[in-house]
């Protein structure tokens, strides 16, 4: 009788543990909430500033419906790994709120295992907080050096080589 009670308790524990980790990607060790956090333009600026003096930063605004964004996304993930010690990547999804789960799914598919962001609020203050030179077209990329100085920014998709060129420039400047 005692044994069967222990087995039931063990099973309950196992089931609860399994459900508890549902929102956590087993392979990535990061919760869904951390993997894709809501952000405003101002909050994002603070995140970018927090890397000043530590690492160069590449900010990339993307969306699941944006073909050039999806095309260039793996290049940026690869480069983050390649320059891990000197570069941080801040991905910001500009998907519509109804597409949030799709964005999360895509991040997992791409093996993103660090905190990324989900744009909230009105477009104009968000765009202006990120760059005066950005018209709002996606994708948008901005590369800053360790001191927080903008080395390059551009709208439109880009190839691996272009990302690497400006990442190197940001790291070496």
């Amino acid at each position: 009788m005692m044994k069967s009670k222990q087995i039931v308790l063990f099973l309950c524990f196992a089931v609860l543990t399994a459900f508890g980790s549902v929102s956590e990607s087993a392979a990535q060790h990061i919760s869904d909430e951390e993997l894709l956090k809501d952000t405003t333009g101002e909050e994002l600026q603070e995140v970018i500033r927090s890397y000043q003096g530590e690492k160069a930063v590449l900010v990339n605004v993307w969306a699941t419906w944006c073909a050039p964004c999806i095309e260039e996304f793996p290049y940026i993930v690869d480069l983050k790994q390649e320059y891990e010690d000197e570069l941080h990547v801040v991905f910001v999804s500009a998907d519509f709120p109804s597409q949030r789960d799709k964005a999360l799914e895509f991040l997992k598919e791409q093996n993103v295992d660090w905190a990324t962001f989900f744009k909230t609020g009105k477009d104009q203050p968000f765009i202006e907080a990120l760059s005066n030179d950005w018209s709002g077209a996606l994708p948008f990329t901005k590369v800053l050096n360790k001191e927080g100085k903008v080395i390059a920014s551009w709208e439109q998709g880009a190839e691996y080589e272009k990302f690497e060129r400006y990442i190197k420039k940001a790291i070496n400047n």
Partner: peptide
Amino acid sequence: TTKALGCTIKW
């Protein structure tokens, strides 16, 4: 003048 998010023009 105002700004909003949108799709890049496919040049």
